[in-house]
Simulated scan of single mutants.
Amino acid sequence: MDKICNVPVAVPSAPDLILDLLVADGGTLSAQSLCRAGALMGIGESTLRVGLTRLAAEGKIARGERGSYSLDRRGAALARAVDDWRHKQAQAVAWRGDWLAVHDAGVSRTDKTAWRHHALALSLRGFAALRPGLQIRPDNLAGGLEAERAQLAALGLAPSALVFRLADLDDAAQAAARKLWNVRTLEADYRRLQAGLERSEKRLRTQKLETATRESLLLGRAVIGHLIRDPLLPAELMSPKPRAALLAATRRYQDKALVLWRKWLAQP
C-alpha cells in the first residue's frame, strides 16, 4: 500500500471511486467526467462504465438526463454514512454510563458475504467485543436504542442478532468495558492524519493540477475512512478535542480538494 504524507492510501475500485465523487460533489456528474476521473486513477473506461451499471442496478446511484449520474440518497446506508461524515460529531449525546449491546453468538458464519456485512455494520457503529458473541458500545448516540437498531439493520446486521441496552454491569465488567477501545492509539491516529492533511494541503498549492487532484482524492478518502469508523466515544472515555481538530482539518482539506476536482474536470 502506498503512502501520502505518512498516511496509507489505496486506489479505489471503480464503484468506490464513483460513489466517492458523487458524495463529494453533492450533485450530478456526467459519465464522461467520471470516466476521466477513472483514467486519472488508472481505471479503464470500460471498467468504469461497468461500475456505473452495477451501482445503478443496486439502487446506489440514479441515472439522469444525457448520461448524468447522482447519488441515490434513498439507497445504500453505507453511502449515506460516508455522505454524513462531516456531521458525525453531532450524533453524540450525553452519556449516562449505559451501553448499547449486540448479542450475535447464534448468527451463522456460513454465508461469508452476510457475515462480512454484519461485521462491517458493527465496526462502522463503533462496537467492540466485551465477551465472545457480545459486542457493546457506549449508549451516547442520538436516537438511542431504536435509532441504533435501525442503523445497524440498514448497514447489514444479521436479523437474528439481538440489539438491546445493557445497564448495571458489576464493577469488573464496567471497568473492562471502558478499556475496550485503545484511546492512545486513536488519539495518535487523529494527530497523524491531521498532520498528513496539513502537509498535503501546503503541497497542493505547488503541484501540477493533475498530481494535486489525484493526491487530494486518495488522501481525503483515506482520512474519511477513519472518520466514518470513529467509535464516537464519550468525553468520559476520551477527549473529543483530537477528533474535533481532525474533523475541522478534513473539512478544510475536502473543500479545497473539491475545487481542484471541479477545475480538473472542467478542462477540455
Rank of each mutant, 00 (worst) to 15 (best):
D104Q: 09
E198I: 12
R80L: 12
D111S: 03
H87G: 08
D84A: 06
R96C: 01
A195T: 15
D139W: 07
S123H: 11
G97K: 04
Q135K: 03
K112D: 12
A177K: 02
L162K: 13
F164P: 04
A167N: 06
A175E: 10
R149A: 02
V102T: 02
T185Y: 04
L193N: 06
N140A: 11
I136C: 12
A154C: 05
H118D: 14
V82W: 03
A147C: 14
E146H: 00
L130W: 06
Y190T: 08
D111N: 11
S200I: 00
R203F: 11
R137H: 00
A94W: 05
R131H: 15
T113Y: 09
G143R: 06
L122Y: 04
K202C: 11
E198Q: 15
L155P: 05
R191G: 14
V102A: 05
D171S: 11
R203V: 10
R191N: 13
A101S: 11
R109C: 13
P138Y: 05
A114M: 02
R191L: 13
A167L: 00
A172E: 03
G144R: 05
A150V: 10
S108A: 15
Q89N: 14
K202T: 15
G126I: 07
W85E: 10
G196L: 03
L180S: 09
H117G: 12
G133I: 10
V183M: 09
A195H: 12
R184E: 15
A195G: 06
R149V: 07
D171H: 10
S200E: 10
W85K: 05
D83N: 10
A90H: 15
E201A: 15
R116P: 02
L166A: 04
L186E: 14
A90I: 15
D104A: 09
H117I: 02
A121K: 02
D104N: 06
R96G: 14
R149G: 04
R191T: 14
A128L: 02
T185Q: 11
K112S: 14
Q194L: 11
R203E: 14
K112G: 08
L152H: 04
L197C: 07
D104G: 03
L186M: 15
T110L: 10
A147T: 12
L169C: 09
R131G: 10
